[in-house]
Design a protein around this nucleic acid. Structure first.
Lengths: 158, 158, 158, 158
DNA sequence: GATGAATGAGGATTCATTCAT
DNA sequence: AATGAATGAATCCTCATTCAT
């Protein structure tokens, strides 16, 4: 494809990113929704979500690299798209946690917005570490240990 | 300051970043060590560490912005410096968790490397969200809720 | 032509020089070879070579200027190209002198490497003087007096 | 010596070159004059001049490098100084040749300006070759073979 | 007289974008 | 619709020169 051809389909370089994220976000979040719906149990829903999250980022390492970079940049053209993705993720996590609270499997005294960051941050950092290690180990196998930490925390319950 | 002046103090543009992180890292980690030593209790040590972490990043928002961007970029000149910072943080967290395991306040079945990402990731994402919100609310007030999530997790213990 | 355009055709500024000399050298030395082959007589071959040499440098004064500057600089990017040009010139002169020695028109006690410098140096200096004079007189008319000096020297043979 | 100090003694960078050449030229040409006066014989005078020329440039390789570069550049700040040096050299060579013509040791049909270039060029090229070889061999030992070529030329006199 | 930190014009190079074909 | 040669603003960096101490 010639240099100039890209400008027939995208307004400029930033627009490539913006459109890519719009497209990818929709695609990935449909998968997330589908995955979450596979279980009735709130904890299992969260486990399925995190597993799928790690799996998708492991499958598309380039996307993972760009996402990690864009997500943590303060002045980005793709700002609104990234916000949308975050928002969608938050919505899914919120629903799961609310269900968990309703069915008694999750604490009722949770600050939802913080819980979302608590989960997203840990997953992101897990992906980030995997990327910096060169993507050499199996990312998906981190799912269960992570869920265990989310649910039980690190404190001893003796 | 004239264009050329910067080159009297730094080898090149990358070197500015590298030297800045070397300097800042040393300074911040001395504070972290000091903070951690203020308490005997492992959970309180972790709380002090996180509080100081949020406090320092809140105090120096520009540093926070650059750190977040560099930390999540895969090809960075400041790579070794960032790695060193991470390593120091890991060491501190490791010590705290090991102490917590010894005195019975933390679970003994923890995968240390994952615990570190679990904590660092959640704190980073908390900072990230604060930055994207424009730094409008008090970041340090997130300390206790975060520690609570780290220790107890989100699962109900009924 | 815009600033950036040159970089479509040359790797960098040095490369302009290198490629120019490669191209010009080939072209000029083909002419030299052709010129030399026009005569059977060694002295006439030398005369044709020098005439063509002066003629080509007179025709392309810019090339002459750059060549004179590069040729006498100790640290040059175009070093290998210049060396090649010199080498080719040396080869041609060597062949002529060896033929002259064989047919008895040239002395047999000559140190070839010095003879080359003796000829090249005198021709170069002649060109150099012409350049510094502003290229105002006819350079080619220097051919016969130069050849006379090369062949007979300045000593009286009474 | 500090950066700024040089500007107390020289107007600018070019002026360093200009003053250096003025100084060096005077010094070297005094030596040349002295050397030439050591013999009564024209050929021996030329031999002494060339020997001293090669000797001085061999002794001060840095000067040789700068001289070779400046001498063959068309736009030089030190232009007038270089011209003066050339002029002095020409004067010396002219005197020698004129004496040689008077005493019968040199041909009377010589174009003086060309003879000078013939000699200077060959000597310069000899120095140039020595510089590019890294100054590894003894330059002064080229004197006699060079003089032989100047006087007798390369033609066979059978 | 000496200093050397600061200067900023100049130069090589890149790269996102345009536009004639 | 596709091309890719040409563009030139922007960026990093150098280095000759100045000037307050």
């Amino acid at each position: 494809m010639a240099d100039g051809t890209i400008y027939l389909y995208f307004k400029n370089k930033d627009d490539i990113l913006v459109q890519f994220f719009s497209y990818k976000a929709k695609q990935v979040f449909d998968l997330f929704r589908e995955e979450v719906s596979k279980s009735e149990n709130a904890v299992e829903k969260l486990r399925n979500l995190v597993r799928r999250h790690l799996d998708e980022f492991q499958r598309d390492k380039n996307m993972a690299i760009v996402y990690q970079a864009e997500m943590h940049q303060n002045s980005r053209s793709a700002e609104p798209q990234i916000r949308d993705m975050s928002k969608m993720y938050l919505d899914i996590v919120s629903e799961i946690v609310e269900q968990g609270q309703a069915d008694g499997s999750m604490r009722k005294d949770l600050y939802l917005s913080l819980v979302k960051r608590f989960i997203v941050g840990a997953v992101d950092e897990t992906i980030n570490h995997w990327l910096h290690s060169g993507g050499k180990y199996d990312l998906v196998s981190m799912t269960d240990p992570l869920i265990d930490l989310f649910i039980r925390g690190i404190g001893s319950t003796k």
